[in-house]
Simulated assay, not measured.
Amino acid sequence: MYLTRFRFNTARSGARRLLGSPHLLHGAVNMAFPVQPARGGEGPRVLWRVDRDHQSQIQLYIVSPAQPDLTHLVEQAGWPTLPEPGWATFAYDGFLGALATGDTWSFRLTANPVHHIRLPQDKPGDRTRRAAHRTPRHQMRWLLERQEKAGFEVVRKATDRQLTEFGDEHELTVRDQVPLQFHRPPAARSRQDVRFTRVTFDGRLRITDPEAFRRTLTHGLGKSKAYGCGLMTIAPVSKQ
């Protein structure tokens, strides 16, 4: 497994075009591999995420079974005249193998929190419809409901640090919420547009099941993985 980081040059039109279309960026990520990445099955898949810490610092993160070549991204959306390659790739297996029960990490996850609903006009026996969670409270609950199976627990705050009676029990925040709608050729426009809500979580977790957690980091969490959702990354907890 490999973890790759690429920085966009937001002054270039190619970067702005890719950042404006999850469909185009999905294709650009796939083009980094001579053999197209698998999308199903039991093995790890290619996951990616865009982090927008501020307008001039936008990073693309990729986790993949094979090492990527991002030359085409540098040419379209990076700094092609600089001597450095424009991206950094790190071997991930040793890091994953060292994860242990009880380890505490800061994390970031971009995901598509959804639930299934029935509308008033639906008939008995109709399939439920997938709908986005709209509020931070429901989005956080979506993640908390999946933490045990995913091999971690979000750290609980001390009681005196909780800001409200409900909804602030954990070291967890929703950093942004972006509703997305875009066309995916060759489908017909409008009716066949892809629609989902992308949410970024920041927080602190404790590993409860290293094997399940490694699977979360390499297989992703939730829906819309092809379009920049599902990738969790972790970092050492900062000392305050």
Rank of each mutant, 00 (worst) to 15 (best):
Y2C: 03
R7D: 14
A11V: 12
R12F: 08
R16I: 08
P22M: 13
H23T: 06
A28H: 13
A28S: 12
N30V: 12
A32I: 05
F33M: 01
P34Q: 09
A38I: 05
R39D: 10
G43E: 14
R45F: 03
L47P: 02
V50G: 00
D53E: 15
Q55P: 12
Q55D: 15
S56L: 10
V63R: 02
V63N: 03
P65Q: 02
A66F: 07
V74I: 06
E75F: 10
Q76E: 15
P80G: 03
T81D: 14
T81W: 12
G86W: 04
W87Q: 01
W87T: 02
F90M: 11
D93N: 11
D93S: 12
G94C: 06
F95Q: 11
L96A: 01
A100I: 02
T101H: 15
T101Y: 10
P113H: 00
H116Q: 13
H116M: 07
L119R: 14
K123A: 13
P124W: 07
R129H: 15
R130M: 10
A132E: 00
R134G: 00
R134C: 00
P136F: 00
P136N: 09
Q139H: 00
M140S: 01
E148D: 15
G151D: 00
K157D: 04
D160C: 09
L163F: 10
L163W: 14
E169N: 09
V174G: 00
D176L: 07
P179G: 01
L180A: 02
F182Y: 12
A187T: 10
R189V: 11
R191A: 10
V194K: 05
V194N: 06
R198F: 05
T200A: 13
T200E: 15
T200I: 06
D202Q: 11
G203V: 02
L205A: 06
I207R: 04
I207L: 07
E211F: 05
L217C: 01
A226E: 09
G228P: 00
I234R: 08
A235E: 12
V237C: 09
S238Y: 13
K239W: 14
